[in-house]
Computed example of a mutant assay.
Amino acid sequence: MKTTDEAPRLAGGSPGVPAPSPGARWRALVAPLGQQLAPFTIVFVICVVLWILTPHFLTTSNILGNLVQMSSLAIIAVGATMVIVAAGIDLSVSTVVGLAGVVSTVSIVEYGTGVPLGLLAGVAAGGLVGLVNGLLVSKLGLPAFITTLGTLSVCGGAALLITDGKAVYGLPDGFKWLGNGTVLGIPVPIVLMLVVAFAGHFLLSRTTLGRAAYAIGGNPETARLSGINVAAILIALYVISGLLAGLAGILEASRVVSGQPTAGTNYNLNAIAAAVIGGASLFGGEGRIVGAVVGAMILQLIGNGSNLLNISTFWQSVIVGVVVILAVLYDQIRHRRARKAT
């Protein structure tokens, strides 16, 4: 008589446990790849459709214009993705853009700090807001949604108070280089976007900070028990998000060569949308910087295609909203299937 230990084993499996079917093994291999390639597929389809519908799409000026216009959103989306990976959210980034822009321009025009220090002041203002968000969320345990919604309002009001609700003009010619200059023929905003994307990818995929962010997003209590300083990591992630929003703010101010206190409207929604469309999960523990940049590109292509096809800006908002809902719905369905599988 055969004992339990002598029972047949399949492919190194446990006794009595049937090996997965070829179809199941194939789905397990293909599903993650399909999820990663989905945003790129969407970009390809949109480009083909626009190429067919309008001859003005595949022109050098239009392609460069799209990349320049999406640069600020992509930079913010990198920070948003890092926060979302750790199961957080930052809704304050849109008004941080305006605040950073006016802090930078007011520093230069009214206090004579010079362009370099003025730019640093704007970025630092964003980092300070991120630090406040991180401390409130990690140290006081406040919900990230409510906390960043509060700082969204505070930053918007602060930008209006600093400027008395008026745009800041009279900036030196050197200020506009960041938003309108070139490096080796490549517009500076595109260069900054690529640098931020590579740096964000490296931080999230190759450093202890990134590994800790994924662990916290997967299960914060388990991460804490494994020795991760959850509070410190969350603070660092929110500071990074604030710094990148500040960078986008001075970039926007440089592009229009003025400080606009209301700049950055809807960047919070669009940054989160770009992250989710690019594969980040609002449940935490999932997300890639490349996906966030591609998500920003999808949103930019929707706007550009609508303009080229003379579609109303009202419909553009509807289209973006539908895309966001579908992305979140897909994320929900995927997680329900994963829970059922376990």
Rank of each mutant, 00 (worst) to 15 (best):
A212V: 01
A213S: 08
A213Q: 01
I216F: 08
G217N: 03
G217P: 05
G218Q: 11
G218P: 02
G218T: 04
N219R: 14
P220S: 14
P220L: 08
E221P: 00
E221A: 12
A223N: 00
A223M: 01
R224L: 10
L225T: 01
S226H: 13
G227E: 10
G227A: 12
I228R: 03
I228N: 08
V230I: 11
V230C: 12
A231S: 15
I233D: 09
I235T: 10
A236P: 03
Y238T: 06
I240Y: 02
S241D: 11
G242Q: 06
L243E: 07
L243T: 06
L244P: 01
A245L: 02
G246P: 02
G246C: 06
G246N: 10
A248Y: 05
G249D: 13
G249F: 09
G249K: 13
A253V: 05
S254A: 10
S254H: 03
S254M: 05
S254E: 06
R255V: 04
R255D: 04
R255M: 07
V257C: 00
S258T: 14
S258M: 14
G259Q: 07
G259W: 04
G259C: 09
P261N: 09
T262G: 08
G264S: 02
T265D: 02
N266C: 00
Y267T: 01
Y267S: 00
Y267P: 01
Y267Q: 03
N268Y: 08
L269C: 02
N270H: 10
A271M: 06
I272G: 02
A274R: 06
A275E: 02
A275N: 05
V276E: 08
I277T: 03
G278S: 06
A280H: 02
S281K: 04
S281V: 14
F283V: 05
G284Q: 09
G284M: 10
E286Q: 13
E286T: 14
G287E: 04
R288V: 15
I289A: 04
I289M: 09
I289E: 01
V290F: 13
V290R: 04
G291D: 00
A292E: 00
A292I: 07
V294K: 00
V294R: 01
G295S: 11
G295Y: 09
A296R: 03
A296W: 13
M297L: 15
M297V: 09
Q300A: 15
L301I: 15
G303K: 11
S306A: 14
N307M: 13
N307E: 03
L309Q: 12
S312Y: 04
F314R: 12
W315G: 06
S317R: 15
S317F: 14
S317W: 08
V318P: 04
V318E: 08
I319H: 08
V320Q: 14
V320Y: 12
V322G: 05
V324S: 02
V324F: 11
I325A: 07
L326F: 11
L326A: 13
V328C: 03
L329K: 01
Q332R: 15
Q332E: 12
I333Y: 15
I333M: 15
I333V: 14
H335R: 15
H335F: 07
H335N: 13
R336H: 11
R337M: 12
